Amino acid sequence: MTLDDLDRMILRALVANADQSTTQLAAKLGLSQPATWRRIKRLQEAGVIAGRRLQLDAAKAGFGVTVFLGVKLATKGRVSLEDFERAVGAIPEVQTVDHVLGLYDYRLRVVARDLADFERVLRRRLMTLPGVGNVEANVLLSEERRPGPL
Score class of each variant (00 low, 15 high):
T75K: 06
G148W: 13
F118P: 02
L115H: 13
T66W: 04
S80F: 11
A137H: 08
G77Y: 01
A112M: 08
L141E: 04
V110I: 15
V67P: 01
V15G: 00
R12A: 13
S32F: 09
V97D: 06
G89C: 04
T22G: 03
V71K: 02
A18Q: 05
V79Y: 14
F68W: 14
L115Y: 15
S32R: 12
R42C: 00
Y104S: 13
D98Y: 15
Q33V: 05
T23Q: 09
R12G: 04
A16W: 11
A27S: 07
R52G: 00
M9T: 08
V94K: 04
G47M: 02
V132L: 02
V100N: 11
R146K: 12
A87E: 13
T23N: 05
V71W: 10
L103H: 08
A46F: 09
Q95N: 10
T75C: 01
V67E: 05
A61F: 12
R109K: 13
I40Q: 12
L69W: 12
R146N: 06
G148R: 04
I49R: 02
R86F: 02
L81H: 08
Q55R: 11
L11E: 05
V79L: 05
V121K: 06
V97G: 04
R113T: 15
V97W: 11
L54M: 03
A58C: 03
D98W: 12
G77T: 11
Q33G: 00
L31M: 15
L115T: 13
R38L: 12
T2I: 13
R38Y: 14
K41L: 07
G102T: 14
A27F: 02
F68G: 03
D4F: 08
Y104P: 01
V132I: 08
D57K: 02
V88K: 03
H99R: 14
M127N: 06
L81A: 10
L81W: 10
L140D: 03
F63K: 01
A46I: 04
A58N: 08
